[in-house]
Protein backbone atom coordinates (compact mmCIF):
# COMPACT_ATOMS: atom_id res chain seq x y z
CA UNK A 1 0.00 0.00 0.00
CA UNK A 2 2.83 2.36 0.91
CA UNK A 3 4.43 1.80 -2.51
CA UNK A 4 1.24 2.70 -4.37
CA UNK A 5 0.66 5.70 -2.10
CA UNK A 6 4.18 6.98 -2.68
CA UNK A 7 3.98 6.53 -6.43
CA UNK A 8 0.65 8.36 -6.62
CA UNK A 9 1.81 11.28 -4.49
CA UNK A 10 4.92 11.56 -6.66
CA UNK A 11 2.88 11.51 -9.81
CA UNK A 12 0.55 14.20 -8.41
CA UNK A 13 3.48 16.49 -7.85
CA UNK A 14 5.28 15.58 -11.08
CA UNK A 15 2.20 16.46 -13.08
CA UNK A 16 0.45 19.84 -12.85
CA UNK A 17 -2.54 18.27 -11.09
CA UNK A 18 -1.48 18.84 -7.48
CA UNK A 19 -0.47 22.41 -8.29
CA UNK A 20 -3.71 23.18 -10.12
CA UNK A 21 -5.68 21.74 -7.23
CA UNK A 22 -3.75 23.76 -4.66
CA UNK A 23 -3.72 26.94 -6.71
CA UNK A 24 -7.46 26.95 -7.41
CA UNK A 25 -8.18 26.05 -3.82
CA UNK A 26 -6.00 28.82 -2.42
CA UNK A 27 -7.28 31.35 -4.94
CA UNK A 28 -10.95 30.73 -4.22
CA UNK A 29 -10.34 30.55 -0.47
CA UNK A 30 -8.34 33.78 -0.63
CA UNK A 31 -11.08 35.48 -2.61
CA UNK A 32 -13.80 34.55 -0.14
CA UNK A 33 -11.48 35.31 2.76
CA UNK A 34 -11.01 38.83 1.48
CA UNK A 35 -14.73 39.30 0.78
CA UNK A 36 -16.04 37.74 3.99
CA UNK A 37 -13.37 38.37 6.58
CA UNK A 38 -11.21 41.25 5.44
CA UNK A 39 -13.73 43.52 3.75
CA UNK A 40 -16.55 42.32 6.04
CA UNK A 41 -14.29 42.98 9.01
CA UNK A 42 -15.31 39.70 10.56
CA UNK A 43 -13.23 37.09 12.40
CA UNK A 44 -15.74 34.34 11.55
CA UNK A 45 -13.58 32.14 9.33
CA UNK A 46 -16.27 29.46 9.24
CA UNK A 47 -18.37 31.73 7.04
CA UNK A 48 -15.57 31.51 4.49
CA UNK A 49 -15.36 27.74 4.91
CA UNK A 50 -19.06 27.29 4.28
CA UNK A 51 -18.88 29.64 1.30
CA UNK A 52 -16.06 27.74 -0.34
CA UNK A 53 -17.60 24.30 0.15
CA UNK A 54 -19.09 24.62 -3.36
CA UNK A 55 -15.53 24.61 -4.70
CA UNK A 56 -15.31 20.84 -4.27
CA UNK A 57 -17.46 20.65 -7.41
CA UNK A 58 -14.51 22.05 -9.35
CA UNK A 59 -11.43 20.72 -7.64
CA UNK A 60 -12.35 17.16 -6.64
CA UNK A 61 -12.71 15.99 -10.27
CA UNK A 62 -9.23 17.38 -11.00
CA UNK A 63 -7.81 15.36 -8.15
CA UNK A 64 -9.57 12.07 -8.77
CA UNK A 65 -10.24 11.86 -12.52
CA UNK A 66 -7.17 9.91 -13.51
CA UNK A 67 -6.65 7.79 -10.37
CA UNK A 68 -7.98 4.56 -11.87
CA UNK A 69 -9.09 5.51 -15.37
CA UNK A 70 -5.55 6.38 -16.45
CA UNK A 71 -4.21 3.02 -15.28
CA UNK A 72 -6.81 1.30 -17.39
CA UNK A 73 -6.15 3.40 -20.44
CA UNK A 74 -2.39 2.89 -20.39
CA UNK A 75 -2.81 -0.77 -19.34
CA UNK A 76 -0.57 -0.26 -16.34
CA UNK A 77 -3.37 -1.81 -14.30
CA UNK A 78 -2.01 -5.08 -15.69
CA UNK A 79 1.10 -4.54 -13.61
CA UNK A 80 -0.82 -3.69 -10.46
CA UNK A 81 -3.33 -6.50 -10.77
CA UNK A 82 -0.76 -9.17 -11.58
CA UNK A 83 1.62 -8.16 -8.80
CA UNK A 84 1.49 -9.87 -5.43
CA UNK A 85 -0.43 -7.06 -3.74
CA UNK A 86 -4.10 -7.04 -2.97
CA UNK A 87 -6.53 -4.91 -4.91
CA UNK A 88 -7.60 -3.31 -1.64
CA UNK A 89 -4.12 -1.99 -0.98
CA UNK A 90 -3.93 -0.57 -4.52
CA UNK A 91 -7.23 1.29 -4.18
CA UNK A 92 -6.67 2.43 -0.61
CA UNK A 93 -3.12 3.53 -1.51
CA UNK A 94 -4.51 5.69 -4.29
CA UNK A 95 -7.24 7.10 -2.07
CA UNK A 96 -4.73 8.01 0.62
CA UNK A 97 -2.54 9.72 -1.98
CA UNK A 98 -5.43 11.95 -3.03
CA UNK A 99 -6.15 12.67 0.63
CA UNK A 100 -2.50 13.59 1.12
CA UNK A 101 -2.70 16.32 -1.52
CA UNK A 102 -5.96 17.51 0.03
CA UNK A 103 -4.43 17.53 3.52
CA UNK A 104 -1.38 19.46 2.30
CA UNK A 105 -3.71 22.05 0.81
CA UNK A 106 -5.68 22.32 4.04
CA UNK A 107 -2.45 22.92 5.92
CA UNK A 108 -1.56 25.67 3.43
CA UNK A 109 -4.98 27.27 3.91
CA UNK A 110 -4.29 27.62 7.64
CA UNK A 111 -2.54 30.82 6.65
CA UNK A 112 -5.96 32.56 6.58
CA UNK A 113 -7.00 31.81 10.17
CA UNK A 114 -3.44 32.77 11.09
CA UNK A 115 -3.96 36.18 9.55
CA UNK A 116 -7.18 36.46 11.55
CA UNK A 117 -5.33 35.51 14.73
CA UNK A 118 -2.80 38.27 14.14
CA UNK A 119 -5.34 41.01 13.49
CA UNK A 120 -8.31 39.86 15.54
CA UNK A 121 -9.69 37.37 17.99
CA UNK A 122 -11.20 34.46 16.11
CA UNK A 123 -12.94 31.61 17.96
CA UNK A 124 -10.39 28.84 17.51
CA UNK A 125 -12.70 26.10 18.76
CA UNK A 126 -15.21 26.93 16.07
CA UNK A 127 -12.58 27.14 13.37
CA UNK A 128 -11.23 23.77 14.46
CA UNK A 129 -14.70 22.28 14.22
CA UNK A 130 -15.21 23.91 10.82
CA UNK A 131 -11.96 22.43 9.53
CA UNK A 132 -12.87 18.95 10.79
CA UNK A 133 -16.18 19.15 8.95
CA UNK A 134 -14.56 20.58 5.83
CA UNK A 135 -11.94 17.80 5.83
CA UNK A 136 -14.56 15.08 6.34
CA UNK A 137 -16.70 16.48 3.54
CA UNK A 138 -13.65 16.60 1.26
CA UNK A 139 -12.65 13.01 2.11
CA UNK A 140 -16.14 11.79 1.24
CA UNK A 141 -16.28 13.65 -2.06
CA UNK A 142 -12.79 12.44 -2.99
CA UNK A 143 -13.91 8.86 -2.30
CA UNK A 144 -16.86 9.53 -4.58
CA UNK A 145 -14.51 10.83 -7.28
CA UNK A 146 -12.33 7.74 -6.89
CA UNK A 147 -15.38 5.59 -7.46
CA UNK A 148 -16.29 7.57 -10.59
CA UNK A 149 -12.76 7.13 -11.87
CA UNK A 150 -13.12 3.36 -11.48
CA UNK A 151 -16.32 3.41 -13.50
CA UNK A 152 -14.87 5.34 -16.44
CA UNK A 153 -12.07 4.44 -18.78
CA UNK A 154 -11.56 7.99 -19.91
CA UNK A 155 -10.45 10.65 -17.48
CA UNK A 156 -12.58 13.33 -19.08
CA UNK A 157 -15.70 11.23 -18.62
CA UNK A 158 -14.63 10.54 -15.06
CA UNK A 159 -14.13 14.25 -14.37
CA UNK A 160 -17.44 15.30 -15.91
CA UNK A 161 -19.44 12.63 -14.05
CA UNK A 162 -17.77 13.53 -10.76
CA UNK A 163 -18.52 17.18 -11.44
CA UNK A 164 -22.18 16.39 -12.16
CA UNK A 165 -22.72 14.22 -9.11
CA UNK A 166 -21.11 16.68 -6.69
CA UNK A 167 -23.10 19.51 -8.27
CA UNK A 168 -26.31 17.56 -7.65
CA UNK A 169 -25.29 16.87 -4.07
CA UNK A 170 -24.54 20.54 -3.53
CA UNK A 171 -27.90 21.61 -4.91
CA UNK A 172 -29.49 18.82 -2.89
CA UNK A 173 -30.47 20.88 0.13
CA UNK A 174 -32.33 23.47 -1.89
CA UNK A 175 -34.08 20.76 -3.88
CA UNK A 176 -35.17 19.06 -0.65
CA UNK A 177 -36.67 22.26 0.68
CA UNK A 178 -38.92 22.57 -2.34
CA UNK A 179 -40.19 19.00 -2.18
CA UNK A 180 -43.50 18.66 -0.35
CA UNK A 181 -43.63 14.86 -0.28
CA UNK A 182 -42.22 14.14 3.16
CA UNK A 183 -40.95 10.61 2.65
CA UNK A 184 -39.09 11.60 -0.53
CA UNK A 185 -37.57 14.58 1.24
CA UNK A 186 -36.52 12.28 4.10
CA UNK A 187 -34.75 9.89 1.76
CA UNK A 188 -33.05 12.72 -0.11
CA UNK A 189 -31.87 14.36 3.07
CA UNK A 190 -30.27 11.06 4.02
CA UNK A 191 -28.22 11.29 0.86
CA UNK A 192 -27.39 14.93 1.30
CA UNK A 193 -23.68 14.97 1.99
CA UNK A 194 -23.49 18.75 2.11
CA UNK A 195 -26.23 19.24 4.72
CA UNK A 196 -24.20 17.53 7.41
CA UNK A 197 -21.36 19.98 6.97
CA UNK A 198 -23.25 23.02 8.27
CA UNK A 199 -23.40 21.70 11.85
CA UNK A 200 -19.61 21.67 11.92
CA UNK A 201 -19.59 25.26 10.70
CA UNK A 202 -21.65 26.24 13.72
CA UNK A 203 -19.02 24.67 15.96
CA UNK A 204 -20.71 21.33 16.64
CA UNK A 205 -18.62 18.23 16.06
CA UNK A 206 -21.50 15.75 16.04
CA UNK A 207 -20.91 12.03 16.36
CA UNK A 208 -23.63 11.18 13.85
CA UNK A 209 -22.35 13.36 10.96
CA UNK A 210 -18.75 12.31 11.64
CA UNK A 211 -19.80 8.69 11.47
CA UNK A 212 -21.87 9.46 8.39
CA UNK A 213 -18.89 10.92 6.52
CA UNK A 214 -16.49 8.17 7.53
CA UNK A 215 -18.91 5.41 6.57
CA UNK A 216 -19.79 7.14 3.28
CA UNK A 217 -16.07 7.37 2.41
CA UNK A 218 -15.56 3.73 3.33
CA UNK A 219 -18.58 2.77 1.23
CA UNK A 220 -17.24 4.53 -1.87
CA UNK A 221 -13.79 3.00 -1.44
CA UNK A 222 -15.43 -0.39 -1.04
CA UNK A 223 -17.56 0.16 -4.14
CA UNK A 224 -14.42 1.13 -6.05
CA UNK A 225 -12.73 -2.13 -5.07
CA UNK A 226 -15.82 -4.09 -6.06
CA UNK A 227 -16.04 -2.30 -9.41
CA UNK A 228 -12.45 -3.12 -10.35
CA UNK A 229 -12.89 -6.66 -9.06
CA UNK A 230 -16.09 -7.13 -10.99
CA UNK A 231 -14.43 -6.10 -14.23
CA UNK A 232 -12.05 -9.03 -13.89
CA UNK A 233 -15.05 -11.32 -13.93
CA UNK A 234 -16.93 -9.46 -16.60
CA UNK A 235 -18.17 -11.39 -19.59
CA UNK A 236 -19.47 -8.48 -21.56
Amino acid sequence: MAAVWKKEVQSYFLSPIAYIFMAVFMLVTGLFFVLTNVLGQSAEFNNTLSNIAFMFILVVPVLTMRLLSEERRTKTDQLLLTSPISLTSVVVGKYLAALTVFAATLVLSLVYPLVLAIFGNPAFGEIFSGYIGFALLGCTLIALGLFMSALCENQVTAAVSTFGVILLLWMGSSIINSISVTWLADILSWLSIYDRFYGFVQGIIGLAPTFYYISASALFVFLTIRTVEKRRWSEG
Binding site: K7, K75, T76, Q78, T82, S83, P84
Partner: peptide, 16 residues
Protein backbone atom coordinates in the same frame (compact mmCIF):
# COMPACT_ATOMS: atom_id res chain seq x y z
CA UNK B 1 1.45 -13.83 -8.59
CA UNK B 2 4.67 -14.03 -6.57
CA UNK B 3 5.89 -16.76 -8.88
CA UNK B 4 5.00 -15.11 -12.18
CA UNK B 5 6.67 -12.31 -14.05
CA UNK B 6 4.32 -10.98 -16.72
CA UNK B 7 5.14 -8.89 -19.73
CA UNK B 8 1.83 -7.95 -21.36
CA UNK B 9 1.66 -7.06 -25.02
CA UNK B 10 1.85 -3.37 -24.18
CA UNK B 11 4.59 -2.90 -21.56
CA UNK B 12 2.89 -1.59 -18.40
CA UNK B 13 5.22 1.35 -17.82
CA UNK B 14 4.51 4.75 -16.34
CA UNK B 15 5.58 7.34 -18.85
CA UNK B 16 6.32 10.08 -16.33
Amino acid sequence: KKRIGYLPEQPPVYMD
